[in-house]
Design a protein around this nucleic acid. Sequence first.
RNA 1: GCGCCCGUAGCUCAGCUGGAUAGAGCAACCGCCUUCUAAGCGGUAGGUCAGUGGUUCGAAUCCACUCGGGCGCACCA
Length: 651
Amino acid sequence: MNLLNTVRDRFATALSGMVTDVAPLLEMIRPAQDAKFGDFQANFAMPLAKQLGKPPREIAQMAIDRLQISDLCEPAEIAGPGFINLRLRDEFIARRISQTAGDDRLGVLPVSAPRNVVVDFSGPNVAKPMHVGHLRSTVIGDAICKTLRFAGHHVTGDNHIGDWGTQFGMIIYGYRHLRDDAAFADNSVGELARLYKLVNTLSDYQNTVTKLPGLEETAATLRTQLTEQEVATGTDEKAKKQLGAVRKQLAAAHDAVKTAGETISSVESNPVLLKLSQSHPGIARLARDETVKLHAGDAENNRLWNEFLPECLEALNRIYQRLGIEFDLELGESYYNPMLADVVASLKIKSLARESAGATCVFIEGNAAPFIVQKTDGAFTYATTDLATIQYRCDTLKAAEILYVVDKRQSEHFQQLFATATLWGMTNARFQHVAFGTVMGKDGKPYKTRSGDTVGLESLIDEALSRARRIVDENDDRREMPMLSSDERATVAEIVGIGGIKYADLHHSRDSDYIFDWDKMLATTGDTATYMQYAYARICGIFRKLDIERNTLTSGGSTILLMTPEERRLALQLLMFETSIDGLLQDYRPHVLTSWLFETADAFSKFYDRCSVQDAESKELRHSRLILCDLMARALRTGLALLGIQVAEVM
RNA sequence: GCGCCCGUAGCUCAGCUGGAUAGAGCAACCGCCUUCUAAGCGGUAGGUCAGUGGUUCGAAUCCACUCGGGCGCACCA
């Protein structure tokens, strides 16, 4: 059972006669922030002082008097203004950890009320190669799925693949008019990706050419305005502020012109691209027409779609396989196509959607922009698809909770989506946008290659593996007697490389942007996946060296002796596993678990350094330490597995 | 113009919805391998929590404003 909750429960009983609402007070009981304050601290006495009209230390004493916790803790102490400090009794830790040692689930009880949770994550686009943005969604979503499942919930991990949008029109158009037959025969998916990129580049170019005069005009207008205002402005603060705002706008406008210029020159400096653009005027429109035909059921376009899709999916699956990711469901956007017309009709009947400027929109209070469910040209949008998807997940999958592991820049979309869905009648499920920040390069800008392209996942994984291999090689070669064969080195490199990528991502709090840095994620020191994996391998080394059969360790009972501070700390850390899992699930923050893993591995490394197993002072102590090691190994393996990270016996 | 987010050690980040002298990792400096894997362990140094004002027993955390940065804002998903 969650150790923190165990302590809280005792306080709940003690406080129930003192105040009416104990819940917020229990929140103020936490693991001690400093070991010298004990193991847990309760901070509720101070805020209660005013409410009860008594000094906080007196209130703390009252609570302690009513508290029955002597089986768990040493006598509570009051410190400072009224903190209550608790120190667990060593016998209690020893007893708890002994019980945990014999438990497959490491003491974690399955939740009493399992929920049906649908986790929408990864969501790549079949036309475009996956990039680092998808990586975040994939890695975070997978960790959330695994942890929810371990906790006992019914989880459906759903990959909502983009297989039906505008990009497919681009592919079809490209295939018809621009394909390279030899390349297509050789590597169809690669050729389709090239065609998508090509059509996208050309339509981008053409749009930009059209837009440029407008952008230049805006910049010119702002420049004139600025000049006039600069002359007119004296020392008036308000006017100065306004001037600053105009300056900012002008800078933005200049940027826009500059970016547009770059887009244009990138095509115009390339004779081949320029010629293609000239021979395919209005390519964006033409591609969109292909999309419309596809959606309208055009036989030829649907044939092409059916031909291309399986291969695209296979290419995606290859990446998922390398990352060790699996889904329970992979219903792409196309799956919901037949339902879209009904969605819009239903929204209209309920007077939620109405016509505006030719499009069908839902207007959500507080949002200036409408939620467009059908465009002027009759096509549906991803808003429509998302609504149909919610309906499916609620009605067919009986979801009680739907999580969207999606870039935080889409938060407005989800706000509108959830509001619309609720108004529409989907009130049985709880929706949550599990948002994450942008992956940045070392320069603080979105992570790109030197030439400005997004970094493909496939090459990213290759890079991780080759870097990891170099590290594994160096490390093993440094030994007097290398421990690994070439095959084993390859396996370890894979485990370390993939683990490094995932851990680096997960250990940042998800909603902040994070800087992608090879050297940090695969560093041989510090808070990395490797640190935990190394701790695991060292434990395995102990069992190998001492020739211990691990699965018989606890058969004769498992008495744990806590003789040193290191053993005590390690045992207590291990008992906090469930608390960290609950912490992760409270707001779907995997970094809560990475912190626990690091602290636990840290506790182990210190234990390893100071508490010899083979040279333990007694047979009993040696056995106790062996059990602790085994438990530690299982905790690491299990905890890392919840994050999708593997371990190796030797590394 | 409207809306959202961010500013914490040289760098990368935590800080658990207001609690005790603000924490990690990296980098820097000094130590530790005849002992279970040194991918490790011990130690030192490093901070006006962007700024100002407010709320109160108590603020990195809540409120207001200022400065600086990012990101969204009809018919791409």
